[in-house]
Design a protein around this nucleic acid. Sequence first.
DNA 1: TGGTGTTTACTGCTTG
DNA 2: CAAGCAGTAAACACCA
Length: 538
Amino acid sequence: MIGPSSGTGSVPERELPDNQSRASKKRIFEDLDIESICEEVQNVRKRYQYQEEIEAPMEVVSSHQGMGDTVALFSPLSAQEAVEECPVARLEVLLVDGTNCTWTTVSELEHQQNIVDMAASPSTSSSSSSEHKQEQVIHEVQVEETSYPINSDYWEPVVTVPPSNIQQSKTDVPPSSSHQQQQFDDQETGNLSWLLDFKLDPFIEAADEKSTVPSYKDVHSGNKTRVNGRSYGYTYVNDVKRSYNENGSSHLESSHSYSSLDNRNFVSSRCNGPKKPPFTYTELIEHALREKGELTVSAIYQWISEHFPYYKSNDDRWKNSVRHNLSINPHFRKGSKAPHGAGHLWAIANRSGDPRPRQIINNFNANSTLKQMNKNTVEVENVRKNISQMNSIDEVEAATASITQQSSEEEAENIVNSVTLEHCAEEILSGIKKEVEVQYLVPMMVSSNEHESTQSNQQTQGLHYPVKESDFLNPVSKEVVAEECGLISEGYLVTDLNPTTLGLNMVEPEIITPENLFGEELSFQFYELSSPSQTQSA
DNA sequence: TGGTGTTTACTGCTTG
DNA sequence: CAAGCAGTAAACACCA
């Protein structure tokens, strides 16, 4: 089928922003050899129709369903959703007429093609036909076709052979005159099925070669290609090799690799040895854990090396990367100690039960999380702004204060959505590289006097309820905090704050001035702890 | 001592 | 061009 399998790091069209997509198309258009494309379109069309005549079409390994299943392996989307997200047979055509470019459909292209054919015919040549400009066609390839049977026991790339390639590789016998007649009849009858198997890859590759000069690193990096920042083995070649599909059966296939999962072109090559799978370590680990539940690190090693021969068990480099991913990715949770041997059991962290902060959220989770947070977008933005404005404060404290403020406001209105707020908080705190825990504390109602004393302060911070920040910023009692901080000693509290605002029961302070005790910049006051009854009587 | 787990730093790539 | 991501390397600590 059709797909840009240049193997040079193409990005799925559907993931590109529109302007970038257009820019990419423009670049391809500028670099392509239009004449070669038009010639190849005709040749492929003829070959395909000839092949249809003499032999059954090759089996197409990838189907909508198969592709959806593959995508669904690592995607929260259902297979059907994945298919809907990844239309397999959608084809758009860019008609270029001079400086004008127009996107059109296949049927429209057929119509244009008929016009060109008629103009080229001697019987229909006229002064008006000379006005017909040769239209140059660029196919925008949005069809990916590759099976990645990661759910099989053994993984290797599975790719398909477009009929055009089969024709090229199997026979060079030109179509007979009857076949030629048939194919032109098909042209007139509008059979454009050949177009679905037209490959643009050679042109794109040629264009890339024209437009890009390999750098020193490219030359000396063993022809490694990187897609989305990942290294996917060696360069794209046109080998025919044997590999295995999901059923374990083997089939001949071309190494023309089209991407399916995230459009990751990986490579089959002439080079000996297995190819690096187009999956990140996070995905590999996740799949292992989803399949097996809980695994030790060594079991994860084993699973990966069993399913992906690229990863040799005796190679410690990728194992280090696996451990690194397990450690830094909150998507994975370290469980209890392994019953046998060293290490712990690792598992996929549940969203609700994950005890660790999410410093990194993978794309899928991030997307779903953002969808869940859609209702609270404004609130999240407010909290983010608050945090950004508190650069002078500790990150955790600022985040906690903002979240507490936010949750307190909603608590006052009994509309707290703890789930979404928790998610919001986790989203915010995910950028803080500290172990933090989000707690929601019900603000304490204070007396009217205390309310008045703190009201002005609260209003300046946008609070509209009688709450003291100190009441809910720390769930531990104030006395305990003061004692643990060494501020309380033998019934006395040394502080530069008014203990009343801290909610502590104190009698009249003895003011320690710089003259009688400390340095010039210190002004501590000496409070004596008292019982609540003493405070009330005072 | 080797396996495991954490952390940091760096590189290369993509993306906005 | 900066930020973010993925991969890699390395250092270090802990533990059986």
